[in-house]
């Protein structure tokens, strides 16, 4: 139980286990030498707050991938909800009610994905592709394609620059979400059942695990985390922007896969997904500092996922042998 997942020790497995750690260290070392602005406290602080959105989504994506599903709608939903929260405040709804509103909405959207996937027996990538189209469309329709500025200073400060016990609030939310997810996955019956579902869904069903209910719950939790991600994103940008997070979905999937998750379910780790998310965040940050064309990030990330996926499959074969 102390181990998060099975460990077998083929070469590919070793490389894969090391990838998030070594990759992160290598990137940090490289950027520290390559840029004068990288290795300092202020940049790290910025990195931490900037990556909060990604980390929250990656945590949710870990659960989704663990049960062998996928959510392609998260980026679009974050954009939509940041628009909604901005508009809610613009309409005079107090910030706390606005936040509550989008949290409810996001859980509903997540649960919708889950119900259609599980009850409708439709592959989740199709369902969430549909949700993605709807959310993207809705975000642009609501705003007329213009960003909605947020004027509420309490909201802007609280979820971006304010600190509690010296810790910036976004970081605090991330820490809470991380600890919560970790506990949930490792130390609750629900979490252990998710491993069972992802490993062998039929065996789990025959052992009396409520497979459908658990899967829907996973999508709803994903929604909850996406809701908080939207709050942080809106606060950081100071507005609700309909096209704000084009790469978020892919970044989150990349983070989870780099973190060693199996695309066929049953294998995923909260800690390693966090490392994966940090790796992506450092990459984003460092490339900006080095004035590398932002767009080549896509290629780099694509190749990194490719590497992680190939390693994962080779490692799986090593186990099978």
């Amino acid at each position: 139980m102390a181990q998060e997942t099975a460990r077998t020790h083929g070469l590919a497995q070793w490389v894969r286990d090391l990838l998030p750690y070594a990759g992160l260290v290598l990137l940090i070392v490289y950027f520290s030498f390559a840029s004068d602005f990288f290795f300092n406290l202020r940049n790290f602080e910025r990195l931490a707050t900037d990556s909060a959105t990604l980390i929250l989504v990656a945590l949710g994506m870990t659960l989704v991938i663990l049960v062998a599903e996928i959510d392609l709608s998260v980026g679009a939903v974050v954009a939509l909800l940041s628009v909604v929260v901005a508009q809610a405040m613009a309409a005079g709804i107090p910030w706390h009610l606005s936040v509550l509103l989008i949290l409810c909405l996001s859980v509903l959207i997540g649960a919708f994905n889950g119900v259609i996937t599980v009850i409708g027996q439709i592959p989740s990538f199709i369902v969430t592709l549909g949700t993605m189209a709807i959310a993207t469309g809705a975000a642009f329709v609501f705003t007329g394609s213009i960003s909605v500025p947020i004027a509420d200073d309490t909201f802007l400060d609280l979820f971006y620059s304010d600190t509690v016990w010296g810790i910036p609030v976004p970081l605090l939310i991330v820490i809470i979400a991380f600890a919560g997810s970790l506990l949930q996955l490792q130390r609750t019956a629900f979490g252990r059942e998710l491993f069972a579902i992802g490993t062998n869904i039929e065996a789990a069903r025959l052992s009396g695990v409520a497979v459908k209910r658990n899967k829907i719950a996973v999508f709803a939790i994903m929604g909850f985390l996406v809701g908080w991600a939207s709050v942080l994103s809106a606060s950081r940008l100071g507005s609700g922007a309909p096209g704000s997070s084009p790469a978020l979905t892919l970044d989150a999937i990349a983070a989870v896969i780099i973190g060693g998750a199996s695309l066929f379910g049953g294998k995923a780790s909260i800690l390693r997904a966090l490392l994966g998310a940090l790796l992506i965040a450092v990459l984003n940050n460092g490339m900006v500092l080095l004035n590398i064309n932002v767009d080549s990030q896509y290629i780099v990330k694509g190749l990194i996922i490719l590497l992680a996926v190939v390693l994962e499959r080779i490692a799986a074969r090593e186990v099978a042998r």
């Binding site: 099975a6 609750t188 252990r192 491993f195 490993t199 009396g208």
Partner: peptide
């Protein structure tokens, strides 16, 4: 079986919820 999980994971699966204590923690 859940082949890639542990003996304990397997044995306790049908009875898991019995071990939830404070705040649902196992």
């Amino acid at each position: 079986l859940l082949l890639s999980l542990t003996v304990a994971d397997n044995i306790a699966l049908p009875a898991l919820r019995r071990f939830s204590g404070l705040a649902g923690l196992l």
